[in-house]
Every structure is written in structure tokens, then in C-alpha cells.
Amino acid sequence: MSDPLDNNTPEQMVTDPSSQLFASLADFYRDNGLYPEAIAICQAGLESQPDNIEGRLVLSKCLLATKQYALARAEAAKVLSVQSEHSEAKKVLAQADSAVPEAEAPAAAPVKVETAVIAETPLQVKTTEEPVLAESAVKLEAPLPEPVKIPEPPAREIPSSPLPLMAGRTEPQPIPAQKTEDRPAEVPPVTKAPPAASDKPTKLAAEEATEWQAGFGKIMNDLVQTPQVKACMLVDENGYAVADAVSRSGQSLSEDSAALSANIFKTAFEALKKIKLGELERIVIETGDEKIFLRQAGRMIMMISADSSAKVGLVMVNSKRAAEQAENLAKKEPNRQSF
């Protein structure tokens, strides 16, 4: 003969959820704030004793404490269905009704999870797994409202932050994109337009420069046509040859002669200044077989090599005209660079 009270021994009461004292044990847990354990005990006990009013009431209180208002209200309603005048059940129902129903929906899922987990595990209140379960359950319930809030900020941050981020990134990205787009757009005009525009000026400038240089050569060619003139050369103030011309019977003047003639002219120029004879205009050097004429043409020096029998007066006249032409041409230099 087995006594039903045998099930209520302390060991059975702890290990067996079908014990009739599960409601008191769950209430004890509830008083100490261990709501998940209390809920687990109640649910396990109510499976075997669904008509246990106290156990269901404790469950409703625990559900109410864990803000599972719908479940708490349902459990309280079950109690009231059996005992309609149950004051505590009414109180729980009233509190569940007054609570915000919107917060119940998200809280409902974790309860099922808890019940499922706890139902599978046997009730071992005094074992070391209890606090683990309790902590895990608390952790599961405590963060419940937080997970709802946590996803929101990221959800807000993601759309909000990416926008500025994208805006910040897209702004620089379009800029280089525009730059890269503009560069090829700008470069071609810069490379194409200026060359196209600068080709003509450069060509014109080159043509003008060549024409300008050819002008000195033409002056020298005209001068070398003077009788007995063998060669002539136009030298800048630094002794570099600008243009020269040679007659049929003459020899071309070397660059050394040009440099030396420029040096002679400079020395004589300074000497005549010191003697107070004014500015030097021309030099006639007579040697045994030739006459050398040096004349200033603006900033240039004209050197004429003539035969010893050359008429100085004729050469002087022609050289003076040529010097004036060269001086005028030098003033028309395209780049206006002085010699």
C-alpha cells in the first residue's frame, strides 16, 4: 500500500514536480525573487495537478511579476473560473489588465523558451545547476526589453549613419569621380585646345623669328655686293655672330674674328670716352692686304672685310645704310630680346 503522502517527502518534494506542495515551493521561490524557478516549478506541478489553485495562482503572480501579463491574466482567469470570488486572482487579473498589453507580446516568446528549457531539465533546486538556470533565465528575461531596444538604435544608426557616411563617402567619391571625369574632360581641352591654339602662335612666332633672322641675312647679302667687299658679319655685343654673308671671291669670317672684332670695338669705345671724343661710331683697320670696317649698328657691331683696294667712302656709305637697316630690324624683334 503506497501512501500518497509518501510523495510529499522532502526529497520528493524537491525532485518530483508532481508533489502536492509544489505551490508552496514555488511561492517560496517567488518571495525570494526567483521567478523563473517558481514558474518552472508551477508549470511542472500543474502538468500533473492542473486543478491546483494555489499553484496556478503562484504562477499567475510570477508571470505578472515577469511582466507576462497575458499569461498572468490567463492563469488568473483559470483560477477565477474555478473560484470566482478568489480575491488574489482578481487582484492579479486587475493588475494584468491595467498593465500595458503591448509589452506582453514580445515577452511571450521568452516564456515559452523558458518553459521548454526548464521542462526538459529536471527540478534540481539544490544542485549547482539551479543558479545557472536561474541566472540564465534572469539573463534571458532581463535583456528581453533590451534586445527590443538594442536593435532599434542600430536600426536607427544604420540608416542614419550610413547616410552621413555614404554622404561623406559619396561626396569625396563623386569628387574624385568628377575630378577623374573632369580631368579627362579638362585635359583634352588643355592638351588639345592649347596646342591647337598655341600651334598657330608658335608657328607664327617661329615664322616671324625665321623671317626676322632672314632679314639680317638679307642685309648682309646686300652689303656684301659692294665692290671689293669680301665678307661681312653682324655680331652682337657679346661677340656672337648674328648673320653673315660672303662674296664669291671672299672667305667667310670665323666666329673668332667676330668675337675679336667685338672686343676691339668695346676697347676703342671705352678709350674714346676717356679721351672725351664722344661715342665711337666706326673703326677702319688697314692691313697689308685688306681693310676691316667695324661699325656700330644699334647694339650690334657690323664687321666688313674688304680688299685693300676697296674705296673706303663707298664702303662707309653702304655700311652706314646697312647698319641703320639692321638697327631698325633689331627693334622689330618678335620677343623684344636685346642682343
Binding site: L277, L280, R282, V284, G288, D289
Partner: peptide, 18 residues
């Protein structure tokens, strides 16, 4: 090298000649 010997020089300036 060509055996040219200087025989005479005329320097004409604005205020005289040598």
C-alpha cells in the same frame, strides 16, 4: 699666320677721330 701686318687704324667718334 696670314702675315697680315697692321698699317693703320681710324676710329671715328661723335666728337672727333683718332
Amino acid at each position: 699666320e696670314q702675315g697680315s701686318e697692321l698699317s693703320g687704324v681710324q676710329l671715328s667718334a661723335s666728337e672727333g677721330s683718332i
